[in-house]
């Protein structure tokens, strides 16, 4: 019936007219703050980072070592059997070069982003992190070996950014 419909409603406005107040609007900024508790498995992960270790969890039933660790295996739907350290080295599963910040504004120096499959975890168990010590992003390759570069022990606070980034291992 789209060919039978002669008029489609909608009154288009210019973004500029809205931002500059030429169109009546109401402005609001929600002022809500959050404290997210890390929970059972993630607390272990963050405590591990403080000590310079990457913690995974293991499930005996499906034989997986999972990173990030979880308190339960989502495939077998049972509690994990324990926590184990994986290595802080891995391979680049995929990567991107971001010229865009979170608010969609543009940045000059791109952020290098990758999914890194960690050694010692089950195949394909990657984590999201940044890449560093790379002069030309065109030298990044799929499958490239990388290693975590940690903050100094006294600077670590138990967050994912205790690892500054991953750098190429040559």
């Amino acid at each position: 019936m789209s060919e039978k419909i002669k008029h489609f409603p909608g009154e288009s406005l210019k973004g500029r007219d809205i931002r500059e107040g030429r169109v009546p609007t109401i402005k609001h900024r929600p002022n809500v703050k959050y404290l997210w508790s890390a929970g059972v498995a993630m607390s272990r992960f963050l405590e591990g980072l403080k000590k310079g270790k990457i913690v995974g969890s293991s499930c005996k039933k499906c034989q997986r070592i999972m990173v990030p660790p979880r308190a339960f295996c989502e495939e077998c739907f049972r509690p994990v059997d324990g926590y184990t350290n994986v290595k802080d080295t891995g391979t680049i599963n995929t990567y991107s070069v971001s010229y865009v910040a979170g608010d969609a504004s543009r940045i000059k120096e791109p952020i290098l982003v990758a999914v890194i499959d960690l050694d010692g975890a089950s195949k394909g168990m990657g984590i999201l992190h940044l890449l560093g010590e790379i002069d030309d992003w065109k030298t990044i390759k799929f499958g490239m070996k990388v290693k975590a570069v940690w903050k100094l022990p006294e600077e670590r606070t138990g967050t994912i950014t205790d690892i500054k980034y991953f750098k190429p291992m040559e």
Binding site: R19, I26, W36, T159
Partner: peptide, 28 residues
């Protein structure tokens, strides 16, 4: 939650609402 490992944050989003067809006339 501050007694356990946690991460603080907030949502820094602004909103600008158009009044819509009917409400715009109402407020004018």
């Amino acid at each position: 939650t501050r007694q356990m490992l946690h991460w603080p944050g907030h949502m820094e989003t602004d909103y600008i609402y158009t009044l819509g067809i009917a409400c715009e006339k109402f407020f004018i």
